[in-house]
């Protein structure tokens, strides 16, 4: 089935729960109300004509600091060999979605990853813990307004350009293959623009 037909079918079934459908996008995607995600997914999986038996990708993204977070589901059907994508937006603070881990087992770990990196809670996920970061990490790293914590168990976390503070190189003529011009370190007066820009972020 083409994505347009699938979207029509979804709209006929769920009505205004399907908020919009971007059919001109490269991967046509339907935007779904957050509370209807599980019902829509269950319908997509169980309906004989749709039969999306594989959740190929489940990814979160951030629409920008101060705006909503979103989750996108890329579904694929081995039987009919068609694709469809749905997405749902949740508020930044306290956003939560119903889980689809009971429909597709693969979604369990993907939801854990979205929870880990974006802080979106999935109600009903059997094992919603942090997966990539340590359990006691602070903050949600992939949000646009994420500020890295200063210390983690006494370890300094933010990367600091510290090589400028090395005392170099007392004259050591055999330190490499190249003929070096400097015998002493040159202190930084102004770093290059890119490094300064990135450290500000």
């Amino acid at each position: 089935m083409t994505p347009e037909l699938i979207a029509e079918k979804l709209q006929a079934r769920f009505g205004d729960k399907i908020l919009e459908f971007a059919k001109d996008a490269i991967n046509p995607v339907a935007k779904v109300a957050p509370d209807a995600v599980h019902d829509v997914c269950k319908f997509l999986k169980d309906d004989a004509e749709l039969y999306f038996d594989m959740c190929h990708n489940l990814s979160g993204y951030d629409l920008g600091a101060g705006k909503n977070l979103a989750v996108i589901y890329h579904l694929f059907s081995f039987k009919h060999q068609h694709w469809f994508a749905i997405k749902a937006e949740v508020p930044r603070e306290g956003g939560h979605l119903p889980t689809v881990a009971l429909l597709w087992r693969t979604a369990e770990w993907h939801e854990r990853e979205v929870f880990d990196l974006y802080g979106i809670r999935f109600d009903g996920n059997p094992d919603l813990r942090r997966i990539l970061c340590p359990d006691d990490w602070e903050g949600w790293p992939l949000r646009k307004d994420y500020v890295v914590q200063e210390y983690y168990h006494g370890i300094r976390v933010p990367y600091k350009e510290d090589w400028n503070n090395f005392d170099t190189l007392a004259a050591n003529p055999e330190r490499g293959h190249f003929v070096f011009q400097f015998e002493k370190r040159l202190p930084v007066v102004n770093g290059n623009g890119k490094a300064a820009e990135k450290s500000n972020q």
Partner: peptide, 25 residues
Amino acid sequence: YVRSNGSDIPDRVRCRSSCFVHVSL
């Protein structure tokens, strides 16, 4: 999964890794 925000740098690059899924099974 790549997403652009109109500038030179991407808004989101997500890698759906197969090994990640295989560890989960």
